[in-house]
Write a protein that binds this DNA or RNA. Structure first.
Lengths: 111, 111
DNA sequence: CTTATTCATCGTAATATTGCAATGAAGCAA
DNA sequence: TTGCTTCATTGCAATATTACGATGAATAAG
């Protein structure tokens, strides 16, 4: 198969899973790190920084744009990418909702 | 290819990515939801709750155990699963480290 | 116009993931 | 023992993902 049965789960569960899927690659995490390390927006000399081919970086950026985490604007001949702050906060909240759900009821390992 | 080039990235980036990969499936999110909704430990009538085959649930539980998020003990003929509280906190911290890194430098969208 | 640079997209090969039926191991009941 | 239940594991088919080279569009320089 290889296809996830999204129809069995809630919208929240599916959204969290699909956002996690975008984060589930070290290259994309590294791109995010570079984007907020350079507090100005960096264009794709990400290709220089990370050791991946230009096509690969471009593909990862597309996925990050796909969930709205990253934005890009044309800067003459090159592209300027940056993090979408509001979406960042939103996604942070998504994970916090998951992580804070546990710890309210039981505090001890039960098995 | 289909293989991730982990050698290009830091250990932290790789760990975060591999934890995110485990969360990147709605069935596994749903399993976690069930595990802390039943504040006692539930055995695998998860098969009843979710609409997936027993083999599929078992495989997902194995991946959750793989990153230490979930523990299981034998309860007679059945299995009792629960969340590992300390690992849970640890992983929560992993994500918070990522999410809190941004927002310190720039507050505005820059492009 | 010609050339170079920057990036996105397409096509492809290698692998990974997902979900399931079938099988097997282990415990318990009769 | 025989049968029943509960899980884990194996083996498979159908996708999905990852990374790359090649190509093409767009802009700027000469």
């Amino acid at each position: 198969m290889g296809v996830t049965k999204t129809d069995l789960f809630t919208e929240e569960q599916n959204e969290l899973a699909s956002v996690a899927k975008v984060l589930a690659n070290p290259a994309r995490i590294a791109i995010l790190h570079h984007l907020f390390r350079a507090n100005a927006c960096i264009n794709s000399d990400l290709v220089q920084e990370l050791g991946l081919a230009q096509a690969t970086i471009s593909q990862h950026l597309r996925e990050l744009k796909g969930i709205g985490l990253v934005q890009g604007t044309i800067e003459g001949v090159s592209m300027s990418y940056c993090i979408n702050a509001s979406r960042w906060t939103e996604i942070k909240g998504l994970f916090n909702t998951l992580f804070d759900q546990y710890g309210l009821a039981s505090k001890e390992d039960c098995c």
